[in-house]
Amino acid sequence: MTVLVRLALLAAVLAVWEVAGRAANPLMAVPPSAVLPALRELLLLRSYPDLPASLLLTLREIALAYGLAVAAGLACGFALGMNRLVGRAYGPMLAALYAVPAVVWYPSLMLFFGLDAASKIAFGFLLGFFPVTLAVLAGIRQVNPQLVTVARAYGAGPVRVFASVMVPAMLFTLVGGLRTGLALSVIGVIVGEILGSKRGMGALINHAYGLLRTADYVALVLMTLVLIVGSDALASLVERRARKWSE
């Protein structure tokens, strides 16, 4: 029942878009029926022959940004979480930085790293770093201290305590943070590309928009959406696996 209503709603939105798109100035809006041909041209590499290269570049930026964010976030989170004093001093400072809209850092990164991939990687890293770090901190707080005491009493060393008590107990939270981190790294890279770049998906989108090729613009946005939704679907799959394993 609800599924039917949902589909009907979706169809209605598409219909309104179609009618409005036909009536509107073609430079401002295009109906879905005009997007499909544009999408075909795009996939056949006729409108934008460098689509694969751009897609690959964006993916590479995301992979690098996220990889760095995970490595640094884990290291930073554990460093802060293991010592009570250090954690209580720097935790609130991290949280305060979280209250700043991240995009304020972008101009500085652009100045420092230039218009090429490096500034996008840096921004994606910055966005992904915070949720990973905060998830580690929250995860460590969740570990039942009694379990650690018991493990110690049975003669487990710090490495053993970490691997067999801490990690399983905090996995749930940690994996959630890793997923949020990925989503934010992806957004960071794409925001960076749209705010200024010469190559990558964002550059293509800006190009289509700048030349008022609105149908191509919508098709490129849809392509990018597939990339974003796909990466999140992958992450949610991993998350579910980890949950099963930790239960």
Partner: peptide, 23 residues
Amino acid sequence: VLNPFVIALYGIPKILVLPWIVL
């Protein structure tokens, strides 16, 4: 009916529609 739509709209990066909004 609306919950999945709202969650999806919350989740997708709005930067993609920014050029169109400015247009």
